[in-house]
Design a binder for these strands. Structure first.
Lengths: 130, 130
DNA sequence: TCGCAATATATCCATGTAAATATAACGGCG
DNA sequence: CGCCGTTATATTTACATGGATATATTGCGA
């Protein structure tokens, strides 16, 4: 998929990004990308479709799921292979709980940072960056 | 500096990491590493010494300073070349203000996430990870 | 029993990031 | 002037991350 404008992340203006990661030893148990993937799995019903939706390779999507499942007490994603439709993946009850907690924390953080960022934003350059 | 135990970031147990980044267009104006670098510059009086202290290359430290200075209304770091001691770098008044705001925001976020993490931690596996 | 679609897993390879290295330029002072 | 240590900048090299690719496995239904 070629494109004239580099399709990286052409976002403009001043903004704040808060990233929350839950770590277990040296492994990222849950972070922004994994949380989005959990939602995509809930919506699509499979790791491969969720990966496509997020335009990542199946390999990568599977590795993320594997890491999550290994880090938490019980799997966040239940998988099945074979069967009429080849199998699939579902967000487990435990996974839904973890995801909800993570999203709630994100929102609480956003409320705080939004206020603080109002004070910082005027210190940034307005127009020309590069 | 060889080492038997890979000197990556051997931290253990369950914990939460909150990273706050101030973005201007596609550039990171300020983030965790840049904030630490600002403090190291304040303490050491030079980019090169600050880089050493944080065990990063001078090139990398300089690039970070350059990005910060380009993103904010006025430079966070004032530099001087030449002179008796070759020059140096100082945290500007504007830089001190920005850094203080960033640290305050970090602390406010930490207070929030600490509470939320107490609810999430028991959902994680305790002992065996790998 | 075969085919399908998805999980599960290994191997190879491209690419971007940062380190390593090199070199100017600068400006006080002895 | 010539020496320092630092800023400033370009160029090359090493490496880790993830993509591409391939293959085995599973289980239901036609």
């Amino acid at each position: 998929m070629p494109s004239t404008t580099a399709d990286k992340k052409i976002t403009k203006g001043a903004r704040l990004r808060a990233q929350l990661r839950i770590l277990l030893d040296d492994e990222i148990a849950l972070g922004p990308g994994k949380a989005d993937l959990l939602e995509a799995i809930r919506e699509t019903g499979s790791i491969s479709a969720a990966g496509k939706k997020m335009s990542m390779s199946y390999r990568r999507a599977w590795l993320l799921v594997d890491a999550m499942n290994r880090c938490f007490k019980s799997p966040l994603v239940d998988t099945a292979k074979g069967g009429v439709d080849g199998g699939g993946a579902r967000l487990s009850e435990h996974g839904a709980t973890v995801l909800a907690n993570y999203r709630a924390m994100e929102q609480a953080v956003a409320r705080i940072t939004d206020k603080h960022f109002e004070a910082i934003k005027p210190l940034l350059k307005k127009n020309p960056v590069i």
